[in-house]
């Protein structure tokens, strides 16, 4: 029983390692990126973020240790943009 509990703790701790999350968005222009910039900067848990301005998918790249893809998608969609996770 104890071992089982321990495993659950481990699984939740796994979220604490640095991860890269990537999303396809419609953050097309510098203005769009500027608009989400405060949001990204103020969110605890986002270590680094950038939008690939020179590629067709306008990929939003996030380095985080504990945020989940769903958190980012919610934030960006709430700001009025499209955001979907790029599959592995």
């Amino acid at each position: 029983m104890f071992i089982f509990m321990n495993n659950i703790k481990l699984a939740s701790y796994a979220k604490r390692t640095l991860r890269v999350l990537v999303f396809k968005t419609n953050l097309v222009s510098a203005k769009d990126i500027h608009r989400i910039s405060p949001l990204m900067g103020d969110t605890a848990g986002i270590l680094r973020w950038n939008v690939d301005e020179h590629d067709i998918d306008n990929v939003l790249r996030i380095e985080t240790s504990w945020l989940l893809p769903g958190d980012i998608i919610r934030m960006v969609t709430d700001a009025g943009y499209l955001c979907e996770e790029l599959p592995d």
Binding site: V22, N50, D52, V59, L86
Partner: peptide
């Protein structure tokens, strides 16, 4: 494409 962004920022 997701994998590419592990190695490179953009």
């Amino acid at each position: 494409p997701a994998t590419l962004y592990i190695y490179y920022n953009d």
